[in-house]
Structure formats: C-alpha cells, structure tokens
Design a protein around this nucleic acid. Structure first.
Lengths: 252, 252
DNA sequence: AGTTGTCGTTGCAGCATGTGCAACACCCAT
DNA sequence: ATGGGTGTTGCACATGCTGCAACGACAACT
C-alpha cells in the first residue's frame, strides 16, 4: 500500500464528519501542515474536497457525483426499486434493499412509508451486521470458509437482550437462515423493531442483494409482521427473476 | 500537488465509467502494472474500490456511505449565514432563511433589518405557508403528488385581500414559482409587507432551503423591492454552490 | 499433455518524490 | 504597532514510490 495515498484518503472520512481547517487535518493525520496542505490541494484538484467560505475544507461535489455513479452501476437497485415501491404500497411499512461488500452490508435503497425515496435520506449507512435480517441473508449465502472467517472477525454488540451474542450463535443462525431461505430480526437491533427479509438471487443462484420489511411493535405485532413473509418472498423472487433474466454480462 | 495521490484519484473517474482490470487501469493511467496494483490496493483498503468476482475493479459502495455521512452533517444554516448577513448589509432589509419539514415551513435564520420598522417573525416558528415567498419556493419543489396532497390539507386564511384563497389558486401559483425559479409575497400576509425570495439547492438539484428579503411599503415600494431580485437570486445561488460543494452550478 | 499467452503478483535497486523544517505573508485581535 | 493565530512557500534530505524483470497461476490452443 502507498503511504501518501493512504494519508490522502484518510482525509475523506475525517471531513465526512464535518468541515475542518488545515491545522485540524494535519493534527488528526499526524503529519506536518505543509504535507496536509499538499494532500488537500491534490484532493481539491480532483474535486473531492472543497474549500468553503472561511478557509475550511469539506467534501466536494465530485465525490457525490462518483457516489451516484457507484450506486447506479449496481443495477440490482434499478430493477428492484419499482418492486420495493409496490411492496410498500401493499403493506405500508418501510422496505430496505442491501448488498454485501467487503465485510460490510450496506443499505442501497429504502422506501419509507408512503413517500417516494429521496436520494441521500439514510441510504448508504452500514447496517448492524450481526442482527439485521438482510445481513443474515447475505452472509448466510457466502461460501462456508469465508462465512466463518467473517463471523470471527465481527464484533457482537448487545444492542438489546435479543442481539446475537457471539460468533457461534451467529453461525448457527446463519445455518438456519440458509436452510429456510428467509430471515428475521425480532428486536435484535432495537427492542421495538421487527423485520422480515428475503434474498434476491442472480442467475447463478447466489444472493446479489437482500430486502426486508421493517415495522415497530406499536404498529404490528411480530406475528402480524410474519404473515407478510409470503408477500416479501414473492417480491424477492420476482426481482430475482427479472434480474437474472435481463442481466447478461457480455464480453467473456 | 502530489503525483502519487493524483494518479490514485484519477482511477476513480476511470472506474466510474465501468469496471476495469489491472491492465486497463495501468494503461489508461500510463504507469506500470505494479504501480497501478499498489494504488488500487490502497484504494481498496479504504473501501473506495472493490474487486468483483475476484477479477475486475469497480467503485465501492463506501463512496456512497461517505457522501451520505457528509450530507447528514451539512448544516445549511451555518453555510448560509455569512451570505445572509452580507446581503443584509447590501440592501438593509430583513433576510430570512427557511426549510420545509413535515408539512410545515420553518424559519431557521433571520437577519434583522437596519430600518426602524421591522416585521414580526421568529426563528423556529412556522411561516404562513400559503402566502410566504419561502413557503411557495419550498412547496413548489416537492414532487407533484406530494405537493397536491399538502396543498389540499392546508387551510387558506385570508390574512389580507391578497392572500391565496384556496388550493387551486395555490397550486397555480406554485407552478409559476417552479417555472420562474423565484417567488414573491406582495402583501399576502400583511398588507404593507412585501417579500422576494429564491431557493437554495443541493447537489441533486432539490431545494434544501429558501431565502427571502422582506420590507414594508413605507420603506420601499414593491417595484423597488423587485429590483433586488437579481441580488437575492445571486446570493441564493452562491449559497447553493457552497452547500453542494461545487464551483460550477448544475443546469437548472 | 505440452505449449503459449495472458494476467496478477513479488523483490529489488535507483532515484524521483514526498516530507518536515523554518521562514514568510496575512488577518484579526489586543 | 505588536503579537498570536492562520495558510503558504522554498529547500535539502531521505523516504517511499517507481519501473523492471522474473515468477506463478490459469486458460486456451495445438
């Protein structure tokens, strides 16, 4: 790995937390001001960083443009979206779409109760990987050795008393999910929130994404939410079919 | 500027066009394969890039997460404030900043007029949503269905004879505002007060806030106030650019 | 099977490149 | 004026980046 690039890229998450001036950047990077300045300049020339009125640095528009392209290239999202909306119209609850990437599970789409999605709402956040239904689905689909390696590396925070406590329990849960082809999160992340989810599979049978429906206890009980399972699975299967039918990654 | 970082960052827009393998990246960068490899590795460790199918490289979803986090930590008010003050120094009148939230439009910042006669308003208070210039701007930017739903739910109090009388008239007014990109309130709230306003837009083109200049008849006539329109729009555009982190405005 | 081509990966020697220092320029408060 | 706080510049040094060439893995042909 390249030290210079490593330092430069470390600036990005730093600025994502909020604007910072040259001194702060240099200090938090552990380098001299002049070094930080040159890194920032380079980032600036590529538009990833922006200087606002009072000399402070912020993430720039180019980064947003790149982020846009990054998700647009995930064509699962395009295909799935209308189906997520439809599902939302039928049940009224929040619908999520997530993918697995590099030891993380990220939400890439979301439909909130009755209103159309707004870009940049809360999509893009990593999910609570040890408890979320979509995370279980995606991890359960990994090849066995990788699954175990990932499970070992994870932390197992006890969000609630129902959270997955450790790797052993997690792997056991994944085996169940793998077997039954769907997953739940019953108060494992927040005590009052339940989810049911199902995988979206590509032509080769592997899970390319996962979707879930979430609702708080006060709206529907666990049992009522579980009655939506067939609908969720049917939607996921529909998306799977459309995805594997239209996706033809030519040039082999 | 730093050569190494410069090269590394050049990879991103390159990958934005589509996945590429090591050889292609090296060639298009004009560097040796081993160099490209090390750059890609570094990008990979930061999650900006990932390898699909253990072969080709593509943009990583972490880019998306980064942009997301940055947007959440963005504070329109902080960015706008100095510009509002500057505008106030140039024209002397009251300047307002407002956002739309949950069927309401709220003032979130205000710079008081230098003239003795001031208008009543308070930061944090909902504005007269059917007549205020800022409210028209923000509602005009909503997606069509939501706009209509909101317009139907509103009350249309006749503050003055010039107030918007009903939903039909309001929607017509919003269409005009949407078209022209600015809005006025000519005695619709208080007989003697006029306003002109313009929207502040984020990187995705949606209005994140709106600003206006207000003055009573006794200080400036409507016609005189309207001559400030270019200045108001220019200020709003400047704030928009700074908020979205770009130097060049997108197309309207 | 053997062979040839392609592609990703590695270790290394040389030197381009990034680094930190110190001095400078600037702005604002005192 | 004076001082402390910024961001910025030029420069000598050596760090860490570069390109080379060789290796291993894999697949496609003959």
């Amino acid at each position: 790995m390249s030290q210079t690039v490593d330092r430069a890229l470390s600036i990005l998450p730093l600025l994502a937390q909020g604007p910072a001036d040259l001194g702060q950047v240099a200090e938090r990077l552990g380098v001299h001001k002049s070094t930080a300045l040159r890194l920032l300049r380079t980032l600036h020339e590529h538009g990833l960083v922006f200087r606002q009125g009072d000399q402070r640095y912020r993430l720039g528009a180019r980064l947003f443009a790149l982020a846009q392209e990054a998700v647009e290239n995930l064509d699962v999202r395009e295909i799935a979206h209308p189906h997520l909306v439809e599902l939302n119209e039928q049940c009224g609850h929040t619908v999520h779409l997530a993918v697995y990437e590099e030891n993380e599970v990220l939400y890439i789409d979301k439909v909130e109760s009755r209103y159309p999605v707004r870009m940049y709402s809360r999509i893009g956040k990593p999910v609570a990987i040890t408890v979320a239904a979509v995370a279980k689905l995606l991890l359960a689909d990994l090849p066995e050795p990788e699954r175990r390696v990932v499970a070992d590396k994870l932390d197992y925070p006890m969000y609630t008393s129902r959270s997955t406590p450790n790797a052993v329990a997690f792997l056991r849960e994944l085996a169940v999910v793998r077997e039954q082809g769907w997953a739940t999160d019953l108060g494992g992340h927040e005590e009052s929130i339940n989810c049911v989810g199902a995988p979206i599979r590509g032509a080769d049978g592997r899970a390319v994404a996962a979707m879930s429906v979430s609702a708080p206890n006060v709206v529907v009980t666990r049992e009522e939410l579980l009655t939506l399972l067939p609908l969720v699975r049917r939607t996921a299967d529909t998306i799977s079919r459309e995805y594997s039918g239209t996706t033809r990654p030519k040039k082999a």
